[in-house]
Measured scan of single mutants.
Amino acid sequence: DDWEIHFNNITIRLHGVSEEQIEELKELIKNGAHEEELRKWAEEVNR
């Protein structure tokens, strides 16, 4: 699925990401992940 997530003036566009991966991302954000951590997560997902 395609997703677009907005938070802290950042837009993250995701393509072909599962519901499970979105839940992981929500947890990262909820736990106060920094932009660098989110980038690493996105790189892993996009492999």
Rank of each mutant, 00 (worst) to 15 (best):
D1F: 15
D1M: 15
D1W: 14
D2H: 13
D2I: 15
D2K: 11
W3A: 03
W3M: 11
W3D: 03
W3K: 05
E4H: 14
E4G: 04
E4D: 08
I5G: 02
I5D: 02
H6V: 11
H6S: 11
H6D: 06
H6E: 09
F7H: 05
F7R: 01
F7M: 11
F7Y: 11
N9G: 15
N9H: 09
N9L: 12
N9M: 14
N9C: 13
I10T: 08
I10A: 05
I10Q: 07
I10V: 09
T11N: 07
I12Y: 04
I12A: 04
I12D: 04
I12N: 03
R13C: 13
R13A: 11
R13H: 14
R13K: 14
L14D: 01
H15R: 07
H15T: 08
H15D: 08
H15L: 07
H15W: 14
H15Q: 11
H15I: 10
G16M: 08
G16D: 10
G16H: 14
G16P: 03
V17P: 13
V17N: 01
S18Y: 05
S18V: 03
E19G: 09
E19V: 12
E19L: 14
E19H: 12
E20I: 09
E20V: 08
E20P: 03
E20Y: 07
I22K: 09
I22H: 03
I22C: 08
E23Y: 09
E23I: 09
E24N: 06
E24A: 11
E24L: 08
L25H: 00
L25F: 13
L25I: 06
K26D: 03
K26R: 11
E27I: 12
E27T: 12
E27A: 12
L28M: 08
L28R: 02
L28P: 00
L28W: 02
I29N: 00
I29R: 01
I29Y: 03
I29P: 00
I29Q: 01
I29H: 01
I29T: 01
K30M: 11
K30Y: 05
K30L: 09
K30Q: 11
K30N: 08
K30S: 07
N31D: 05
N31K: 10
G32M: 02
G32D: 03
G32H: 09
G32F: 03
A33D: 01
A33G: 03
A33H: 03
A33E: 03
H34F: 04
H34S: 15
H34A: 13
H34M: 10
H34I: 10
E35Q: 04
E35Y: 11
E36W: 09
E36H: 08
E36R: 06
E37P: 01
E37D: 13
E37A: 09
L38M: 03
L38N: 00
L38S: 00
L38R: 00
L38P: 00
R39E: 07
R39I: 15
K40N: 07
K40Q: 11
K40C: 05
K40S: 08
K40T: 06
W41F: 05
W41T: 00
A42Q: 07
A42L: 15
A42G: 02
A42M: 13
E43A: 07
E43N: 04
E43R: 02
E44G: 05
V45E: 03
V45D: 02
N46I: 14
R47F: 15
R47Q: 15
R47E: 15
